[in-house]
Design a protein around this nucleic acid. Structure first.
Length: 541
RNA sequence: GCCCCCAUAGCUCAACGGAAGAGCGUGGCCCUGCGGAGGCCAAGAUGGAGGUUCGAUUCCUCCUGGGGGCACCA
């Protein structure tokens, strides 16, 4: 009995007991949620608040029906402070434990969604190395992908490469400037990386007069040599790199999209430019699709890209992760895509606020053009990637992330990352010690029997409770698209493990083999849960 | 001027309209025991004024203070 099942089954009861009108009024606001405080049970609902308002005379009979219907799944179902609280029953937890002993990490997969979803993230311009802001995108995207997969979604992780357009031409000019073939201008890219590349490929950089072609070449070098290397160090692996330039090889795609706008009378030609009249649908400004110089804009590419994902490649859900500076662009893009027939529910945009890097009191601004940045590599030279991921995942995308390099280094021995790794090391150490004593830890025992014994232990039961509620949380994370909710849950679990370790002596005179099996399972679950964040669990610290 | 995000404990941050939680720091307690990088206990917070609601950190309005955006850049 998961939260969602309780919710659905309760609704069936209500449907039977209430008139259609009352049911609809109540169902609209009905909520089941995980209690924040486990002293108030595991699940809770606002049902009684709503009933009091809508149909108070039914309260008693409905309450009795619920209590009766679910008594096998919950030890207690209590009215407390006006809430209706459900305390997960030993029988449910016993079954969870039994299943997890059988299926191990596969227990956490609930495969009831089958949609294909494409997740577009990082997608930094291939004009320079990745910076800390891109990590935020990577961490969000990777973990979301993992949570989606647990629910059965078929996930494609995609990096959209802006390998054409004005900035790519600027990149080409910047390289030429480093070879003194052009004077530097303000908007040019700077940095050691570019100087090196210009030198390395100086014959070609000198010779190639087509900026677009040269820029595309350089972009590829940067993508391969800088960006992919950093991503690998960070532990992010994309399924696909999609090149913006490839969109323009598909004339049919372009025609198709333009035809729709034309039919809706949203296009305007002016001095050779093509303008999408978004002001006609209530936007505050129009968007250029084609510039006066005949070249398509980023906005046009973005339209084509999303149209292509949805209608040509047939993804049912498009999720994009953007920096918050794109919010205005996103609003207009969303509106445009709706005109093209992509519904809001098939289109999710996550924006994250800036990452500010501090070095003590000094705030370091990131500017690619000026060549001031903290790169991922610089950061990963001094901190493990897992720790960086951990710190980044903890914070909601809506808040700016203030990252103090000095503090991160100084505190590296007393932060939640090490606290969590320490739990992993402790569990592992129990198993190692047993091995040293010549004890076999790969024990095959009947899961049914072990589980029914172990679940009597309150410490163990409490850990199994987390196993159970992980699945509920997974659904919430995807519904809200907020993987940072996982962070709190995870730390809570870590705390339970330390408590377990302190209070349950596994290695005694008489070792209980069933407990050894549990410790091994616990270690495996913890490892699996670490990996959902892209963090490698440590066997020792 | 218009748009987006933020303001919670001394500090850094959580909280799907549901009972405000962590970490660090502070004060106590716990090592004849699997790793004390630990466990237990305590003090301590929703920027201001209204509104909606059974219930508001969460939604709405206004105010104050931060950050970001309003290109034929991406």
């Amino acid at each position: 009995m998961q939260l969602i099942d309780l919710y659905r089954k309760t609704k069936l009861i209500l449907k039977k007991e209430l008139s259609p009108a009352d049911y609809l009024a109540l169902e609209k606001d009905l909520k089941f949620f995980l209690t924040k405080d486990e002293n108030f049970g595991d699940y809770s609902t606002n049902l009684l608040f709503l009933l009091k308002k809508i149909k108070p005379e039914k309260e008693e009979v409905i309450l009795e029906t619920i209590k009766n219907k679910f008594k096998n799944y919950f030890d207690r179902i209590e009215v407390e402070g006006g809430y209706l609280n459900f305390y997960l029953g030993e029988k449910v937890l016993f079954e969870d434990l039994r299943e997890i002993l059988k299926k191990r990490y596969k227990f956490f997969f609930s495969l009831f969604k089958k949609q294909r979803v494409v997740l577009d993230y990082v997608s930094a311009n291939p004009t320079g190395p990745l910076h800390l802001g891109n990590i935020r995108s990577a961490v969000l995207g990777d973990s979301l992908a993992n949570f989606l997969k647990l629910l059965g979604f078929k996930v494609t992780k995609e990096y959209y490469v802006n390998d054409r357009g004005t900035q790519i031409e600027i990149l080409a000019k910047s390289a030429k400037a480093y070879l003194n073939l052009l004077p530097f201008e303000d908007e040019y890219y700077r940095g050691e990386y570019l100087e090196k590349i210009a030198q390395k490929y100086k014959d070609y950089v000198k010779k190639e007069e087509n900026f677009e072609k040269l820029g595309k070449f350089l972009a590829k070098i940067i993508l391969e040599g800088e960006i992919k290397k950093s991503l690998k160090r960070l532990g992010t692996k994309f399924d696909n790199y999609f090149f913006e330039s490839s969109l323009y090889q598909d004339k049919k795609l372009i025609d198709r999209v333009l035809k729709i706008f034309e039919k809706k009378n949203l296009l305007e030609k002016k001095n050779g430019a093509l303008i999408l009249k978004l002001t006609k649908v209530g936007e505050n400004k129009d968007e250029f699709l084609i510039r006066e110089n005949g070249k398509p804009t980023y906005f046009f590419s973005d339209i084509l890209y999303h149209y292509q994902k949805f209608f040509i490649r047939k993804f049912k859900l498009l999720i994009d992760i953007f920096g918050a500076d794109h919010h205005d662009h996103i609003r207009r893009l969303k509106k445009t895509l709706e005109i093209l027939g992509i519904k809001e529910k098939n289109l999710k945009f996550i924006t994250y606020q800036h990452v500010l890097i501090k070095r003590g009191e000094e705030i370091l601004r990131m500017s690619k053009r000026k060549g001031v940045y903290i790169t991922i590599d610089e950061l990963l030279d001094v901190l493990p990637s897992g720790l960086v991921r951990f710190l980044f995942l903890a914070i909601t995308p809506d808040s700016p992330l203030e990252f103090d390099l000095e503090l991160a280094l100084k505190k590296s021995e007393e932060n939640p990352y090490w606290y969590s790794q320490y739990a992993s090391a402790r569990l592992n150490s129990i198993l190692e010690k047993l091995k040293e004593k010549g004890y076999k830890i790969n024990i095959k025992l009947d899961p049914q029997k072990i589980a029914s014994h172990l679940i009597k232990d309150e410490l163990i039961k409490n850990l199994v409770r987390s196993f159970h509620k992980f699945k509920d949380l997974n659904l919430i994370i995807i519904k809200e698209l907020k993987p940072n909710l996982y962070y709190d849950f995870f730390l809570n679990f870590i705390k339970k493990i330390h408590y377990f370790y302190e209070n349950k002596k596994i290695i005694r005179e008489e070792i209980d083999r069933r407990e050894v099996v549990f410790v091994k399972t616990l270690r495996d679950v913890l490892g699996f849960w670490f990996k959902l964040m892209g963090v490698e669990p440590m066997k020792k610290i």
